[in-house]
Simulated assay, not measured.
Amino acid sequence: MYSCDILFPAHHQITIIKNPSAAKGRHNHTFFELNCIKTGRCLVELGGHSFFLPAGSFAFLPPDTAHLVHPNQDCIWYQLLIAPDVLEQLLSFDNNIFCEFFLQSVFTKESTDCLISHTASAEPDAWLLLDAMTLECQKADLYSDKMLFHLLLTLFYKLMRIGEMTILGSHDFAKKTHMAVIARYMLQNYTCASLARLADQLNYSLSYCSHFVLENTGFTFKQLQKKIRMQKAVSYLLYADTPVNLIAEQLGYSCSENFMKVFKQEYGLTPTQYRARMKPQ
């Protein structure tokens, strides 16, 4: 198994490839992955499960989970890689099944849940949207990310209108619900998150809340808060021109020196060095 984040260009938070080469083995990455099967079929291995996707299927896979998508020879398909930050923006628009899937899986360790949509393979609108996204992704100009986001949002609503949406995987609905509460709380309060306040929302004791977070995310509460802050920092550095001292303030650090120290420990570079090396030109 290997991590393939390096394969995806940093100039977009949404990347789409038509008929990509099949991966050589099981792999993981920090993106959500949407596989769209126009003709033929694909075999999907996710965690310890495997299933076939026929023509007209859309499969939304969680991040940080080992998986493999293998198309048959006559398959025409599209693969979208979507940064969690993009899906987080959906929360301000709606509370739909894509938001639910995002909240349930964004911090869940090795989630094997999968959001499936089945549509009539002859339905043209979804494929026209995917072709438009493919063309937009190749432009990489100032408007590309906004165009890709709104095309993706249109695709999601189109799938909810014409397709049958199902979340496959774990049937532990209480756990899923509580993971969604944790994700929403942490994303909304990462600058000042408190284990005590989260425990109150879940009606857990402090010790059990701490254990639940660690068991289901693989991180302690503080580590999870730091992970979110660092992800936000990277987004600011790559996709905005916000000065480093203001990034530190917006992330809840008392001074920029503390932020720079934590960032360098995490990435081996100062924020300024990271931006200079990684920011798309």
Rank of each mutant, 00 (worst) to 15 (best):
L206V: 05
Y208M: 02
C209A: 14
C209T: 07
C209G: 09
S210K: 11
S210Y: 06
S210Q: 12
H211D: 11
F212R: 01
F212I: 03
F212A: 02
F212H: 02
F212Q: 01
L214F: 09
E215A: 13
E215Q: 14
N216W: 10
N216L: 03
N216M: 01
T217F: 03
F219H: 10
T220D: 08
T220H: 04
T220Q: 04
F221H: 10
Q223H: 08
L224C: 04
L224I: 05
Q225M: 13
Q225K: 14
K227W: 11
K227H: 14
K227R: 15
K227C: 11
I228L: 06
I228D: 00
R229M: 10
R229I: 03
M230T: 05
M230Y: 03
Q231I: 09
Q231F: 08
K232D: 00
A233R: 02
V234K: 11
V234D: 00
S235T: 13
S235L: 10
Y236K: 06
Y236N: 08
Y236C: 11
Y236W: 10
L237W: 04
L237F: 09
L238F: 06
Y239P: 06
Y239I: 08
A240S: 15
A240D: 12
A240T: 15
D241W: 15
T242C: 14
P243Q: 00
V244Y: 08
V244W: 05
V244F: 09
N245H: 12
N245S: 14
L246C: 07
I247E: 00
A248D: 04
Q250K: 12
Q250E: 10
L251D: 00
L251A: 03
L251N: 01
G252I: 08
Y253E: 07
S254D: 10
S254I: 06
C255Y: 14
C255L: 06
S256Y: 09
E257R: 14
N258W: 08
N258G: 14
F259P: 00
F259M: 01
M260Y: 06
M260G: 09
K261F: 11
K261E: 11
K261M: 09
V262T: 12
V262Y: 10
